[in-house]
Design a protein around this nucleic acid. Sequence first.
DNA 1: CGGACACTTCGGCGCGCACCGAAGTGTCCG
DNA 2: CGGACACTTCGGTGCGCGCCGAAGTGTCCG
Lengths: 236, 236
Amino acid sequence: MAGKDPQAPHLARLAALIADETRAACLLALLDGRAWTAGELARHAGVAASTLSEHLGKLVAGGLLTEERQGRHRYVRLADARVAQLLEDLAAQVAPQAARRPRNLRESSAGSAMARGRTCYDHLAGRLGIAVTDALTARGLLRQDTGFALTDAGLGWFDSAGIRLDRTGRRPLARACLDWTERRPHLAGVSGAALCRHALEVGWCVRIGSERAVKVTAAGERALDELLGIEAATLR
Amino acid sequence: MAGKDPQAPHLARLAALIADETRAACLLALLDGRAWTAGELARHAGVAASTLSEHLGKLVAGGLLTEERQGRHRYVRLADARVAQLLEDLAAQVAPQAARRPRNLRESSAGSAMARGRTCYDHLAGRLGIAVTDALTARGLLRQDTGFALTDAGLGWFDSAGIRLDRTGRRPLARACLDWTERRPHLAGVSGAALCRHALEVGWCVRIGSERAVKVTAAGERALDELLGIEAATLR
DNA sequence: CGGACACTTCGGCGCGCACCGAAGTGTCCG
DNA sequence: CGGACACTTCGGTGCGCGCCGAAGTGTCCG
């Protein structure tokens, strides 16, 4: 048969990079947007350092990760926002099955912290991300009914809040990212990333431990209420 | 180690479905949005019917495909628009390597027909899709600078063109889909699908052979020029 | 009712790959 | 300079899975 799309082998090779449980665990860990060392990832995934080294080689060669060598450490991070988006989309696709009841107390409390608020690569997700997105929409700053885009008023809001938006790159200013806990879209793209960075910089929220979960501070509750009318109760 | 995201096995299993070249070829073929029989896919992929039957079993069980039994035929199609989007995003990710020079004349002419115009699941892509998207944007019907959404004028345009938009579902009205030939976003979502369906129904374009490629008709060139100011030359 | 046809199930084969531990390379620090 | 450390390379092992052909099931049609 002549057919058989020439893209098929490439697609299969890309998917194969994610199709291993150990590599998948690494990629999900790296969704926190930070750089991890090979050793950290090996401990996280529960395999030998030598095994993980081979995995990193494949992921870097496949373009999903970039590496930075510093002394005797090999730091890796997701290659770019596009890769992060791809992983988020895949994660959202499997979420229905993954949303099963937690096995024990520890997993449960960790899970609920993640459900309250977390980062999705470089933007806010969980109930916190949804609350912010909903508030922006309710105030006419974000338009979701005909797609997903900031309004002119929305541009003004970011400006007046002192959050600068880099509009030079090709990355979209606003993009919907489907939340795998809430099953609803939240703000991603340049503006979502800028908002998250700002929130962490000025202390509206802080990271919990070494995971992706974040917690809203008292100052953050005040600021979100003032700027967007978000009641603190909705974040708990 | 306690860590290791509980989502990792699910993510790996989903990716594994796409990580086989034969299954990938099937999924890409099904991106035309139509239903194929198991036999057609077996011939397309160049494997035995028994082999393909097993593949279809996995893809259906994994939720990527839905099946419909009719007599002695088993028709399968992509489960929904979300799956199609996922595949398109993955295909776009590998496009840089896949965009190599064609091996022979036949592949070359098939490739250029696909580059001129094709369907991406249920919306228009290729130069045709880009041209429509650009025209909508230039006329203020689609806003891309702050995200990706129809404007109120855009809603009016669809209405006056007699293209009804179903706004009841959860699928976004407008969504960007990255084109793997042009490397630029084009219109997808409810409005993109409605536009494509309309174009095929009223004969603005017709499918070429059994593939995803489409050709703009003379009537289509006139209509696109009148409604959106697209010059026929840009489509060739 | 019998044969053609589409698909499925099963057994068996062979390749690919994730894994480990041991040995090797390069970096940091006392 | 020597030892601790992070990572890499290399053989070797075993499992998983994609593949086929043959036999089986269900459907259509003359």
